[in-house]
Design a protein around this nucleic acid. Sequence first.
DNA 1: TAAAAAAGTTGAACAAGTTCAATTGAATAA
DNA 2: TTATTCAATTGAACTTGTTCAACTTTTTTA
Lengths: 191, 191
Amino acid sequence: MSHYLLEQNIKKNIHLSNEDLTTVSNYFKPLDLKRKEFLLTQGSICKFEGFVVDGCFRVFTLDKKGNENTLYFAAKDWWLMDIDSFMNQTASNLNIQALEDSKVLLISRKDKVSLYESLPIVEKLFRIMSQKALVSWQRRLIRNHSFTAKERYFHFIETYPDISSKLTDKQIAGYLGISHEFLSKIKKNSK
Amino acid sequence: MSHYLLEQNIKKNIHLSNEDLTTVSNYFKPLDLKRKEFLLTQGSICKFEGFVVDGCFRVFTLDKKGNENTLYFAAKDWWLMDIDSFMNQTASNLNIQALEDSKVLLISRKDKVSLYESLPIVEKLFRIMSQKALVSWQRRLIRNHSFTAKERYFHFIETYPDISSKLTDKQIAGYLGISHEFLSKIKKNSK
DNA sequence: TAAAAAAGTTGAACAAGTTCAATTGAATAA
DNA sequence: TTATTCAATTGAACTTGTTCAACTTTTTTA
């Protein structure tokens, strides 16, 4: 059952009784996406928070120059949303696209609000999750400033071998913030 | 009284009764720092979370090449800590230095844990604060990838005129992730 | 207030990364 | 299965940003 993975993920962050765990888990509804389908597109408002049960997603924005700037990838056991649009209920700048046939569990914004109210320990859960995410974003910024593109590339493929093996070089380049031509040159002169 | 600003800041995030607000606020202890003094240095463990009541701080890391990489600045009404070291109780990679004579309110890690336990709504407070911070970090990454150094510079000084006017160009360059010589050239050819 | 230290400027040479265009290779859809 | 589309590679010319060194200006400290 797809909720099992979600429950295990939650347990990594916080201790919950089985009853509470089931309550939380039941708020999440499964959704299947085909390869290349979008869970969210730029301009719309993000009304869900998601957890990836299977497959892989790319969260990216298209800037003025037409570059696809990838904020992050989310594979199995990762969370997924546009937190900016979700919190502020403003038009999203992000696209969330399935890179392969995928399955997610979604909780709607409304349901999340009721969940916070009915089960206050969920506040703690998302407080901890958000703080962990914050740590990753800060680390990534430091890497972006202090590593060269080549160092960032190898850090990425070594840290996330499972995810990076599913990605094209173009997608990886979009995550690293470099052109795919330059990534190709990095790979060439590293052999 | 210096706790007033903290209480106002908390109220921006969440509604609390005056009683609860006072309870939270009382956990925070004032500390004065002279210009150039450090609140945290690389290698030590961050045991506090801080709120700036007056003055200004720079949160930076010294990388292998000897570059001072600035994660963020925190002026009056901003929060301050190494969340990575604080959460994981591992050696910090960050230095937190006062840029001018400053006053902070600090809550110790121990006190924060008891506060979470005695007043569960504090979970919600920090959940919201963390999520807002997350939004800022994501936006900053997108800017770093899609803006040139020149665009990032003007975005910074226009968005944070109060903070940037207190900073040297060297410090701003460290925040933007560029050399201070290049920042000088950007300013020259923008006149 | 003088001396010292730090910040800012400038130029020249260099390195990192982009852009464009052409070509090849791989995956996908009809 | 073939045509088509998309990904990857390469080179050349270019732009962005770095490094180093010398110098000026401002700020700090004794």
